[in-house]
Amino acid sequence: MPKMKSHSGTKKRFRRTGTGKLMRGKAFKSHILTKKSTKRKRGFRQETVISNADKRVVSTRLAGR
């Protein structure tokens, strides 16, 4: 049986830290930025840890199982 491939979309959207946490980019930062405060837009730049509910799905798609 051939090896399973990692999901390409998942590879582009998530990354694993050195300690094994899964990081994701924040949403709502791409357009209609005029009505959003500078402080809020600045917060969109940082990555954040994914929720516990999504960990299993994302890690399986990254591992390719």
Rank of each mutant, 00 (worst) to 15 (best):
K35C: 03
K11V: 15
K12G: 07
R16W: 02
F28H: 08
Q46V: 05
R42P: 03
R15P: 01
R45H: 04
R56T: 08
D54S: 10
S8R: 14
H31M: 05
G43F: 00
M4S: 13
T17M: 01
G64W: 10
A27W: 05
K55M: 10
K29A: 12
K3N: 11
G20P: 05
I32V: 10
S51E: 05
H31E: 06
V49T: 09
I32A: 10
S30D: 14
Q46T: 08
N52R: 11
R65L: 11
L33C: 03
K36C: 02
R61K: 15
S6H: 12
D54L: 06
T60D: 12
T17Q: 04
R24I: 08
K21S: 01
S37T: 06
E47Q: 08
S6Q: 13
R45K: 15
N52E: 12
L62F: 07
L62S: 02
V49F: 04
L33M: 02
N52A: 15
L62R: 07
K39Y: 04
T38Q: 13
H7P: 04
G64I: 11
T38E: 14
M4N: 13
K55W: 12
K21Q: 10
N52V: 13
T19W: 04
G18N: 10
S59I: 12
T19L: 06
H7N: 15
I32Q: 09
P2H: 13
K36R: 08
S6W: 09
P2Y: 11
I50P: 03
T38K: 12
S30Q: 13
R45Y: 01
R16G: 01
V58S: 02
S8H: 09
L22F: 07
G25A: 09
P2N: 14
H31F: 06
S37E: 00
S59E: 15
R45A: 05
A27S: 14
A27P: 06
K55V: 15
V49G: 02
G25V: 08
A63C: 14
L22P: 00
K55C: 09
T17S: 06
R65K: 13
I32G: 09
L62C: 08
E47M: 05
F44K: 02
T19F: 07
F44I: 01
F44P: 03
L33N: 00
R40D: 09
T60W: 11
K12W: 00
K41H: 02
M23Q: 05
R42N: 06
K11Q: 15
G20I: 02
G18E: 10
S59T: 14
T34Q: 11
S8V: 11
A27N: 09
D54P: 00
K11C: 08
K41D: 01
S6G: 09
F28P: 01
R65D: 12
M1L: 13
F14V: 02
H31A: 04
G43H: 01
R13A: 12
K41F: 00
V57C: 08
S37F: 01
S30H: 12
R40H: 08
T34D: 14
D54E: 07
I32Y: 05
I32M: 15
A63N: 15
K36E: 05
T17Y: 03
G9H: 06
R42H: 07
R16Y: 02
P2L: 13
K5D: 14
T10Q: 06
S30T: 15
G18V: 07
R45I: 03
R45M: 06
M1V: 12
R61H: 13
L62T: 03
K36T: 00
E47T: 03
K39Q: 14
K41E: 02
S37Y: 01
G64D: 07
L22Q: 00
K12M: 12
V57F: 14
